[in-house]
Design a protein around this nucleic acid. Sequence first.
DNA 1: TTCATATATGCATATATTTGCATCTGATTG
DNA 2: CAATCAGATGCAAATATATGCATATATGAA
Lengths: 128, 128
Amino acid sequence: MPFRDIAAKELAKIFSVLAHPDRVRIIEELGAGEKDVNSLQAVLGVSHSRTSQNLAVLRTNRIVTERRDGRHVFYRLSQPELAGWILEGLRFIEGDAQASEARLNAFEKARQKWGSEAAGELLFTNRD
Amino acid sequence: MPFRDIAAKELAKIFSVLAHPDRVRIIEELGAGEKDVNSLQAVLGVSHSRTSQNLAVLRTNRIVTERRDGRHVFYRLSQPELAGWILEGLRFIEGDAQASEARLNAFEKARQKWGSEAAGELLFTNRD
DNA sequence: TTCATATATGCATATATTTGCATCTGATTG
DNA sequence: CAATCAGATGCAAATATATGCATATATGAA
């Protein structure tokens, strides 16, 4: 298989791992620092099983790393810049001329809360 | 729906559009400039129907834009920086310590052919 | 009509979501 | 110090839904 196809396949694979709202949220949350499964579940507002299973997908693909402490398992991003990269992706949605006002508003807020507009700033900093 | 969820959902949507090897390849090809369907099909080495269907996905999600000229339809990236952003994503695969040697080789070559390692360089430049 | 491209249909495969159960760990009690 | 209990997490089976792909058919320009 030509190298281009290998690389394209791998990239597509990564994208498919990221192609789930829960997993995007998880990565964004972990961009602010490690969290245990329960906290993540609470923030996402979904079932613990769903949280756990999406974490498993991220874990299997080495997007996150786990650390056990007592009965809690803490997750963190294997590569913290990943969160920043994802955040940058927002601009490709915003660039869409037909993006609705509500959507644009959401992005604006998300950028403010999740991270910074500065290109060089790669980590999410604020909470709310 | 909280703004975070909206943004996460939209991001996940984009990722799912990108989560297909053919579509990644198409975006990479278009990163070098516009191309008509036939050329794309030839480069990808897949059926015309498959090419057309994947272009439809990209078109529907406004990743690409079409221009008709006679009986040929030329596609180009709506937002050329998208190709660069995708290329940047390669490093998250490479960061994976367990990436196989073959894979790493493919990425190395891909980077050389498709674009540059420099962070600021956002477009694919070379052909081969 | 022919060439270039798009779309529709149907089937196979993959992915997501829920429900229920298993396991591990730390705390409590007898 | 067991024996037991509850919390935290993972995993599996069942079902629903989505996606990919080939084949066939349609549009539209030359």
